[in-house]
């Protein structure tokens, strides 16, 4: 290689390395899969808000993936200033790694969940397999698409909602409940690692008859592909609370505590709540959710994770999704 080529390469590499953006405040938000569009819109609103508040620009770096996987990356050193994950136990895992202070869930209103969601069924146009309730998922010949509860938050809500239905159906008989849930998972055709992967499997690749989906993800699919799908809201489902919090160890290291706090607080503002509603997340503000009553079934019976049936995330996580837990047994058998 001639010297001239080498010199050109050297100059080129220097150019690549030496064009960092001018010093600017930066915030990293590690989130779960279906919030991509929500935070894209929210970040723009927040940048404007921060500009008005502090006369300063802020860059927000987003990362998305299966909730448990994302929590893992934060534990391994992915320096998120805030985490906005699918369920509390993933954040608890980060807390146990010593990165988030105890008691984080009571720092913000509504269990630190600025928006909630629930689990619905996305079926193909005309609902050819007549899937109307949880019991239909266990029928023979029904192809179910859900992500893997081990890596995805949404999938754990799916699983627990099915469990809740079976608990009532089989009168708390746990053997029958397990048999039912196992049958549902026997019908699963593809087990992706995150909610968005499952949506693509169902919507793009045309696999399966029913997608167990976040309500927001189901509405997004309707909007993306109008006329191809229908949403079936089962008579009972689960109140999914995706919480948000600051990662104390990293904000202290990066000096971003004030910025991160404001970022999360703004989610509860009227503007933040409306952005959530517009992206099919149920706003936690009871007044603002009414503005979106045309697509949220507000009368839906929703069980919560703190119901005695589950006993909160700590208990439920260990019993159902821990190593050797119920899900492991179901999926191995």
């Amino acid at each position: 290689m001639s010297n001239r080529v080498l010199a050109a390469l050297a100059v080129f590499s220097l150019l690549l390395i030496s064009v960092p953006a001018p010093a600017q405040e930066e915030l990293t938000n590690v989130s779960y899969d279906p919030t991509r569009e929500l935070y894209e819109a929210y970040n723009q609103a927040f940048q404007k808000h921060w500009q008005e508040l502090k006369k300063a620009d802020v860059t927000i770096v987003q990362s998305h993936g299966g909730s448990a996987k994302q929590a893992r990356s934060v534990i391994e050193g992915n320096e998120a200033d805030v985490v906005t994950l699918a369920l509390a136990s993933d954040i608890t895992a980060i807390e146990e790694a010593g990165l988030i202070n105890k008691g984080w869930q009571s720092e913000l209103p509504n269990n630190s969940s600025p928006y909630t969601s629930t689990i619905v069924f996305l079926v193909r146009k005309g609902n050819p397999k007549k899937i109307l309730d949880w019991g239909d998922l266990a029928r023979e010949g029904v192809g179910v698409i859900t992500p893997n509860p081990k890596t995805s938050g949404g999938a754990r809500w799916n699983y627990l909602a099915a469990w809740d239905w079976a608990d009532k159906e089989y009168d708390h008989d746990e053997t029958k409940i397990v048999a039912f849930v196992k049958q549902v998972f026997d019908n699963v055709l593809v087990l992706d690692s995150g909610a968005r992967g499952s949506t693509n499997t169902f919507v793009q690749n045309g696999q399966g008859d029913v997608l167990l989906a976040w309500e927001n993800e189901a509405y997004l699919s309707l909007a993306e592909r109008p006329g191809e799908f229908e949403i079936v809201t089962p008579p009972t489902s689960i109140l999914a609370e995706p919480p948000v919090t600051i990662v104390d160890a990293y904000v202290d290291k990066n000096g971003t505590r004030e910025l991160a706090t404001e970022y999360l607080k703004f989610l509860y503002s009227d503007e933040g709540q409306r952005i959530a509603g517009a992206h099919y997340y149920r706003p936690s503000n009871p007044e603002i959710i009414k503005e979106f009553a045309d697509y949220f079934d507000l009368g839906l019976k929703l069980v919560t994770i703190d119901d005695p049936l589950f006993g909160g995330w700590e208990v439920a996580q260990k019993k159902h999704f821990g190593d050797g837990g119920v899900f492991d047994q179901i999926y191995e058998k």
Partner: peptide, 15 residues
């Protein structure tokens, strides 16, 4: 390369 990079990336957009 996708696989190995995907594991160590953290998927931080723009970074």
């Amino acid at each position: 390369e996708f696989g190995a990079v995907s594991v160590v990336s953290g998927h931080l957009r723009g970074k």
